[in-house]
Design a protein around this nucleic acid. Structure first.
Lengths: 167, 167
DNA sequence: ATTAGTGCAAATATTTTGCACGGAT
DNA sequence: ATCCGTGCAAAATATTTGCACTAAT
């Protein structure tokens, strides 16, 4: 937008998340703050799936350098979703975020035992979605598909080492 | 269970939700209270989709006959899900319930404008789900598919009368 | 200089829980 | 007579918001 490139070209692929967010901010007259810059790095450097709480846990504490208040983390995560950088969905009551920008469309399998999320991609699903929607007179803006079950590891008796086992 | 009928026969179809819940309670040594009886009637007499708050709103107030405390409503809704009478899922932060017992498997379209839920049924979706799951080594216990978009009514300019328009 | 952004704490919203009493078995 | 279930209020969770101050433009 700022440098007006040829219009029909998908700019996206050539911009880093950081650049893309800058663009988003500029087009809306929003400001580029140290918190926003820090957070976008923190989010895109690290995780695949996370919630606000997990993210806050990994960030500097109050008093430390680069501390960002929880309120700002929540506010900024919503901006990231707005900007198309992240996607969010609800799982077990909390809001889960995942990287969207630069990632192919996909859906999830959720192991209700180890609480891990796995991804899968299915064009068939999207086709089916669009067919159903058009039959119902719906203009689709998105969907959320989560397959629940027990993952391979958890199926074989006692699970071995797993990340968040403190639950 | 209590009268031990022929084993391979699907008992379900012949039992009312009330009977089915009784059975559930009996097999677990739980008690049949007036609150549980009242709630199962309230739930199965009325609604398709609802959340705890909406249900509580429709029930007798404190002091009135058949009053049930919110805590008990929450506790009992979870029992209903446990008993296979209701299904629950998260939508916009709240827990939505719907009748499950006696209803065919289905999924939802959600209009983000009027907040209405619509249903659809697709065997293809279930097939796809099972295929994906088996490829991933998952033992499926269920799934949740929600197609978001704008419904037909909301697409044609200003929507007309709609239920929960107080939002 | 303007005014959006932030940190803080309080407010919300939703659901859960501890506890003493009452009721179902 | 047990001890599960309930109502109540307080707690827990997760997220949002009002406000005064700070900082980006």
């Amino acid at each position: 937008m700022s440098t007006s490139p040829e219009s029909l070209q998908p700019l996206d692929v050539s911009l880093s998340p950081q650049e893309r967010f800058e663009e988003y901010l500029q087009t809306r007259g929003l400001r580029q703050t140290s918190q926003r810059k820090f957070l976008i790095d923190a989010v895109f450097d690290e995780h695949e799936h996370f919630d606000a709480d997990e993210l806050i846990d990994r960030l500097p504490r109050r008093g430390e350098k680069n501390y960002v208040s929880s309120a700002t983390v929540y506010r900024t995560l919503r901006e990231f979703v707005d900007a198309g950088l992240l996607k969010s969905f609800q799982l077990d009551g909390r809001t889960v975020y995942e990287l969207d920008y630069g990632y192919p469309q996909h859906d999830h399998l959720y192991c209700t035992k180890c609480k891990q999320l796995f991804e899968f991609q299915s064009d068939l699903l999207v086709e089916m979605r669009d067919k159903v929607a058009s039959e119902m007179g719906f203009r689709v803006t998105g969907h959320r598909m989560i397959i629940q079950g027990i993952c391979r590891e958890c199926t074989k008796g006692r699970r071995k080492k797993r990340k968040q086992d403190l639950v």
